[in-house]
């Protein structure tokens, strides 16, 4: 019986140690609640609201910032994306249908493979396929308004004029 008690106590000690480490040593992180269907409480009425929504989606529901960081190097940084957008249209690797900077950004969000920044393609496709999903796809599931808001946010961080129309005006 002695060995049973000894080995059981030893096993419980090990399990306890692992539990203690996981509960008390590593920082307590509570994963966020599942995202709601839409990050927007209503349609943004002003450019300020549109930009706020864009920033929120960029860092939250859209999960853009997960890959588009300077440190990770997994996807190109987007601080100047709206600046270079126009030039991309005439780049030899471009295969999309966009006509201006804004429509280029829109296309990059819904059809990321239309232009893949050199070095960021899926390996084995010779830069032809982007690893990024269509942001309308259900794992991210951005609405049309949210996509516009993200484009406006990108234009704002790039320091160019915001050309995205507010939802009301676009509908006219």
């Amino acid at each position: 019986m002695g060995r049973f008690v000894k080995t059981a106590a030893f096993s419980l000690f090990i399990i306890g140690l692992y539990t203690f480490y996981s509960v008390f040593v590593i920082p307590p992180i509570n994963p966020g609640e599942p995202p709601s269907e839409s990050a927007a409480s209503g349609e943004p009425a002003t450019i300020v609201e549109l930009l706020a929504l864009g920033e929120e989606v960029y860092n939250g529901k859209g999960a853009c910032a997960l890959c588009h960081t300077r440190e990770g190097g997994r996807a190109p940084a987007l601080e100047g994306s709206a600046l270079v957008a126009k030039a991309r249209l005439s780049s030899p690797g471009y295969s999309g249908k966009a006509v201006d900077a804004e429509s280029y950004l829109y296309e990059s969000l819904v059809d990321p493979s239309a232009y893949v920044v050199p070095g960021y393609g899926v390996s084995g496709t010779d830069g032809g396929v982007s690893p990024m999903p269509d942001v309308r796809a259900s794992s991210i599931g951005l609405s049309e308004t949210e996509i516009r808001a993200v484009i406006a946010y990108l234009q704002s961080v790039s320091g160019v004029e915001i050309t995205v129309a507010l939802p009301e005006r676009r509908r006219e």
Binding site: Y18, S22, V23, I26, P28, I29, N30, P31, E33, P34
Partner: peptide, 9 residues
């Protein structure tokens, strides 16, 4: 919702 690591442990 996704449970925390502490809870899972």
């Amino acid at each position: 919702f996704t449970p925390s690591i502490a809870y899972a442990a």
